[in-house]
């Protein structure tokens, strides 16, 4: 078995005539925190959705924990945790009930459920809120519920699709801190997409920049900064790296109408 938790080879996703992901290949090593950067409509979410079995690739393959996403989808699902972009916790249920239902959906044995849920609630600092309905919690706390929910079956690979989008700076910092702490306590590989360059810079071991469905750069934050010609790597930021590889500023890109969003949103 290879050292890679994720291996993506020439993966393509088309919606009709539109190519959302265009022959992207990369690998994520076991235990790595891997960041996917790119504006809305770049293809990040589509790429993640193929890796977590929510979308069938049009071409190419993705192997997660040694399981092919097309042929061994259930094995992939058992070995991964997923936090989708939207807040998908059940607002009517309590924090603990949300975790309990997902533990059952993943087939976690009865005797380990309670221990796992207690440990996770401690890890995301929600122990005192365990009996509260999720609708009573703040946005940052709901995100932490989802992080705990995604880990309730002890996955080996954790996919997070823009987990801090829409959160205030304090909640964002708390979520990232929590992820780092959980990562340090578990044998976990993390693949995360984000818009926040500074956070990706601090947290990710390696970063892939995706634009218009293509992989335009992939390396460690330091190496990406060093790849900018004629600049002192210490003064270069990931924003500069993004401009260099995509030819535009991330904020501009975020405000562009997204061709990729439309076909995807229609399909949802």
């Amino acid at each position: 078995m290879s050292d890679n938790a994720i291996e993506v080879k020439a993966i393509v996703k088309k919606f009709g005539d539109f190519t959302a992901v265009d022959h992207i290949s990369f690998a994520v090593r076991d235990g790595e925190i891997f960041g996917l950067l790119g504006p809305n409509g770049a293809g990040k979410s589509t790429l993640i959705r193929m890796m977590v079995t929510l979308l069938q690739p049009t071409e190419g393959t993705a192997v997660i924990n040694g399981f092919d996403v097309a042929r061994q989808a259930d094995d992939v699902r058992r070995s991964i945790g997923v936090i989708p972009q939207a807040m998908t916790s059940d607002l009517e249920l309590s924090v603990e009930e949300n975790l309990l239902i997902f533990a059952k959906l993943y087939g976690v044995p009865r005797e380990t459920r309670t221990r796992l849920i207690t440990e996770l609630l401690e890890a995301v600092e929600l122990t005192q809120w365990r009996t509260k309905q999720v609708k009573l919690l703040s946005g940052g706390m709901r995100r932490r519920v989802e992080i705990a929910r995604g880990l309730v079956h002890e996955p080996r690979v954790f996919f997070l699709d823009e987990p801090t989008t829409g959160l205030d700076p304090v909640s964002r910092t708390a979520v990232w801190g929590m992820l780092q702490r959980i990562k340090s306590q578990r044998d976990l590989t993390v693949l995360i997409t984000t818009h926040y360059m500074d956070e990706a810079d601090k947290l990710c071991d390696r970063i892939a920049i995706v634009d218009h469905g293509k992989l335009v750069a992939l390396d460690s934050p330091g190496a990406l900064k060093a790849s900018i010609p004629g600049r002192d790597p210490d003064s270069v930021t990931l924003d500069d790296v993004f401009v260099h590889y995509t030819g535009r500023d991330l904020r501009d890109a975020l405000q562009e109408p997204s061709a990729a969003d439309s076909p995807f949103m229609i399909r949802r």
Binding site: R77, R78, V82, Q85, A86, T88, F102, L105, Y106
Partner: peptide
């Protein structure tokens, strides 16, 4: 609301 996405990533 995307709740079904949560189910679909489970086995």
């Amino acid at each position: 609301r995307g709740l079904h996405e949560g189910y679909l990533v489970t086995p």
